[in-house]
């Protein structure tokens, strides 16, 4: 078997939130203590991506999908867990040690307005990662030529190379962001909601470009999105997250044809669709996502789940592999047959 480009095991990320000390003061056991307030953003998430594969991470806001992406890109330091990029463990590296890793992994951000430096020309923006990697060994003419080549690849022309970000539209800026990620010829690109800030006609252009680049450079994507129709278009495999837990993983066709976790079913039926035939009103959920400050006991989804029963409040379901591929974290699906190897 080929080595996965990205292999994440039991990734945990929690944030201490900065409430004032007086808000946190509690009398416990005769002592005055100020326990830290902790948000459990990511709870033991494992995933892997094969070369050339697109894995989509789906979920609603606050489910931890962006935190997973940013922790893998080491924008956040993980609380615990392993992150292997191309076989190399990176979860404990410091910023200097991470520099060669960034040659393998680049990121595209959601907001094309905030992710480009407004004071840099775009030819400098797109070449910045390569310049950082090359340790000043590239001549400036080489750098310029490379920048123009990159911009041409994403559909921008040489005259535009000297302009500043504010002179471009949202879609063009996202192209610039993609060119910047490509500059070091990475194996893996982490794309955090790359098209959700764009109009639908521009969104199609960017999705097409990303798919073309995957074929051309053999890229793998970790594609974070809340939009199921976009995910269906681009992904090979899909992982669904809820409240920091991974609740289901499956191949794209399997997930969309036969979603198994009640949350996945609800998510699919809630998505509006232009095709009347595809609207499924059956699985409706009420209420909203609980706070990550105060996770429910047992299953994370039980407070909204129409199928919840007594065991769901007591025991947290593990993500277990299923017959026919994929895995689900739900007590309704955890009766693994004897003959089935786990």
């Amino acid at each position: 078997m080929t080595q996965p480009v990205l292999d994440v095991r039991n990734l945990v990320k929690s944030f201490t939130v900065g409430d004032g000390i007086f808000d946190r003061l509690r009398f416990t056991g005769g002592k005055l203590l100020a326990p830290p307030k902790v948000v459990n953003a990511v709870n033991s998430v494992s995933l892997s991506i094969a070369p050339g594969e697109v894995l989509a991470l789906v979920g609603e806001s606050g489910c931890g999908k962006s935190t997973v992406a940013k922790t893998i890109a080491r924008i956040h330091a993980p609380t615990s867990g392993e992150i292997r990029i191309d076989g190399k463990e990176v979860s404990c590296l410091n910023q200097k040690e991470l520099r060669p890793v960034r040659r393998e992994l680049q990121m595209i951000f959601q907001d094309p307005y905030a992710s480009l430096n407004p004071r840099q020309r775009i030819k400098d923006i797109v070449i910045e990662p390569l310049r950082a990697q090359s340790d000043r060994r590239m001549s400036s003419s080489d750098i310029d030529a490379e920048a123009i080549k990159l911009l041409a690849r994403v559909g921008l022309n040489a005259e535009q190379a000297n302009r500043y970000p504010h002179q471009f539209s949202g879609g063009q800026r996202q192209r610039i962001g993609i060119a910047r990620a490509l500059s070091v010829r990475p194996k893996l690109i982490i794309a955090d909601e790359p098209v959700s800030a764009l109009d639908v006609s521009i969104q199609a252009q960017i999705l097409n470009l990303m798919m073309d680049l995957r074929d051309e450079f053999g890229l793998s994507y970790l594609f974070v999105s809340h939009d199921l129709s976009v995910v269906h278009h681009i992904a090979d495999r899909v992982a669904v997250m809820y409240l920091g837990f991974m609740v289901e993983t499956a191949s794209r066709d399997q997930l969309f044809a036969t979603p198994r976790h009640p949350y996945t079913q609800a998510l699919l039926s809630a998505a509006p669709n232009v095709d009347k035939a595809l609207r499924k009103p059956q699985a409706e959920i009420t209420g909203e996502v609980p706070s990550a400050l105060n996770l429910p006991s047992g299953c994370c989804f039980r407070t909204r789940c129409p199928l919840a029963f007594a065991r769901c409040a007591v025991e947290r379901p593990a993500l277990l592999p299923q017959r026919g591929g994929g895995s689900v974290a739900c007590h309704l699906h955890d009766t693994v047959p004897e003959a089935f190897p786990t």
């Binding site: 639908v200 199609a204 199921l228 129709s229 232009v274 095709d275």
Partner: peptide, 9 residues
């Protein structure tokens, strides 16, 4: 606009 929407079908 309609063509730009990824269709699940």
């Amino acid at each position: 606009l309609l063509d730009s929407i990824p269709r699940i079908t």
